[in-house]
Write a protein that binds this DNA or RNA. Structure first.
Length: 271
DNA sequence: ACTGGCTCCTGAGGGC
DNA sequence: TGCCCTCAGGAGCCAG
């Protein structure tokens, strides 16, 4: 699925393709995404010139004078430009036709994605207002994680996946980052030391950087703009490796569920 | 104020 | 070959 690195890539790519162009028509074939696309979105958007494309967490923000369109790619969402007359494919739910004869097309087989509209400053939209820190923000640090973790009894893996704490750490990366620093995923967040959070913060950034370098991580669903699956999955040390030998110590990788999510760890290396 | 469980959806993969 | 069942997951929402 699109993780933070992939969303950033999509953001940069479409920015070069849509900024400065005017929306001439919005075709909605399937309005029922994670939330129903607002009925007045097409009316509000048509005639607007896209002035900016930005990312906040995994949300993509297409700004114009009259408001901001907010996309989320969910797990299987893809957002690409095509010539306006190009052939439709299955799950092509929305087309934003632009004045340069291209169409920004949203395809999402599982429909966990979203397309919403914000008339006001998008950062005040309910979905964005309470988001946590960007992992590459200069002030993101172990000290900050440590501070946030006090009085939090939930598992540290769920804590770093909490979008109100730090954004963009998905299920795969959470398991991998915790393995990298030797912290057991089920430990209550408040029991992790400052020193450990300092290493964990670095590991989160490191894992995300690696994923970018390898073109994404998705085990099953993600395909990059070139249609190739990302290769980062081959770098995974624990995710999806239940009952296989740990690369570090040979102990069998364990699997458990935390917050309804598959969680992988080495019982020997992580404590 | 937190936490855990539920929910949306389709497609992959396994068993037979 | 095909059918059916299970599982996967981002993350907001809500009940406890």
């Amino acid at each position: 699925m699109p993780e933070l690195p992939e969303v950033e890539t999509v953001c940069r790519t479409i920015a070069t393709q849509v900024v400065g162009h005017t929306v001439t028509q919005v075709v909605i074939r399937q309005p029922r995404l994670r939330w129903v696309i607002p009925a007045d979105l097409a009316t509000l958007w048509v005639g607007q010139t896209i002035q900016s494309v930005a990312r906040r967490a995994k949300y993509l923000l297409l700004g114009s004078a009259g408001g901001t369109a907010i996309f989320h790619l969910g797990m299987t969402g893809r957002l690409r430009t095509f010539p306006s007359d190009s052939t439709l494919e299955k799950h092509d739910h929305v087309d934003i036709q632009l004045s340069n004869q291209t169409s920004l097309r949203f395809n999402d087989s599982r429909r966990f994605g979203a397309l919403l509209w914000s008339a006001d400053a998008p950062e005040q939209h309910p979905l964005l207002a309470r988001l946590g820190m960007e992992p590459f923000a200069p002030i993101f640090s172990g000290a900050w994680l440590y501070e946030q973790a006090q009085r939090r009894s939930l598992a540290v893996k769920q804590f770093i996946m909490d979008q109100q704490v730090v954004v963009g750490v998905g299920n795969i990366y959470a398991s991998e980052a915790l393995f990298q620093v030797g912290i057991a995923p089920q430990r209550p967040a408040s029991t992790v030391s400052l020193r450990e959070y300092e290493r964990l913060a670095v590991a989160i950034q490191d894992i995300l950087q690696q994923a970018i370098a390898h073109g994404g991580s998705t085990v099953r669903d993600f395909q990059g703009g070139d249609g190739k699956a990302g290769s980062f999955q081959q770098q995974l040390k624990v995710y999806g490796r239940a009952q296989q030998a740990c690369h570090e110590c040979g102990t069998l990788i364990a699997r458990c569920r935390l917050g309804q999510r598959s969680t992988y760890y080495c019982p020997q290396c992580q404590s």
